[in-house]
């Protein structure tokens, strides 16, 4: 009886929920048509992924976040140039990749920046263990952190043109075609660079993993 009296309220979906369900290209179109909230959805969807990508490329977390911001500013300003027949993510990663490349080029001209980055990373890596997850024993934590650090260093040691392909494939899960679009090199080169990057990565981490 009580159940019969229950009134089913129609599910009301907010505009933000509707936008969140749209594909990237559609969001871009909505933004260009004047729906400013569509940009929020795109930013929410991609900022963590782009941060990961740029961080892996340049190895400096704070600077990587600045560059992700810059990526979004460029996306915001130039979204009208985005070809909606292609993947938005490819376009955004291309912008992010170019910014990372410029950053590395600028750094190579300024060794002081590289030194500051290493120092910052070293300080972060040597904070007391008690700040981490206390479910593990300190020696386990140390070993785990040490291993991760070695993996991170191994990625950072790859030459830039191998690293970008490696990060996009192994960490970002991009297809060969997407990597080719993002990096602007042909498919064959993507494949060979990825293979070399994997070989080099395996050589660097093998002594620590087994």
């Amino acid at each position: 009886m009580a159940r019969a009296l229950q009134i089913q309220k129609p599910a009301v979906r907010t505009r933000s929920q509707e936008l969140a369900e749209l594909e990237d290209a559609r969001l871009a179109a909505e933004f260009l048509a004047g729906e400013a909230r569509a940009f929020t959805v795109l930013a929410d969807r991609y900022h963590a992924r782009l941060l990961n990508f740029i961080y892996r490329m340049i190895g400096d977390r704070d600077r990587a976040e600045d560059l992700v911001q810059e990526t979004f500013v460029r996306v915001y300003r130039h979204l009208h140039r985005y070809d909606q027949n292609r993947k938005f993510s490819t376009w955004a990663y291309t912008i992010a990749g170019n910014l990372a490349k410029n950053e590395l080029r600028n750094r190579s001209r300024n060794p002081m920046v590289l030194f500051q980055t290493i120092k910052k990373n070293w300080e972060a890596d040597h904070r007391p263990l008690e700040w981490e997850d206390n479910r593990y024993r300190p020696d386990d934590l140390y070993r785990k952190r040490d291993l991760r650090e070695k993996v991170e260093v191994a990625v950072a040691q790859l030459p830039e043109h191998h690293r970008v392909v490696f990060v996009l494939r192994e960490l970002e899960g991009k297809t060969y075609e997407e990597i080719s679009d993002i990096t602007g090199v042909n498919l064959g080169t993507v494949k060979s660079r990825l293979n070399r990057a994997r070989n080099a990565f395996a050589e660097l981490i093998a002594p620590h993993i087994e």
């Binding site: 941060l51 990961n52 961080y55 911001q69 993996v151 991170e152 191994a154 960490l171 395996a202 993993i209």
Partner: peptide, 25 residues
Amino acid sequence: RVLRKGRMLARQMDPEPTADFIPRL
């Protein structure tokens, strides 16, 4: 094995964006 384990470890190290990322943007 080494490659698969290394890849798995590398994927565990994703940095989290700071909480104020979107407000700053």
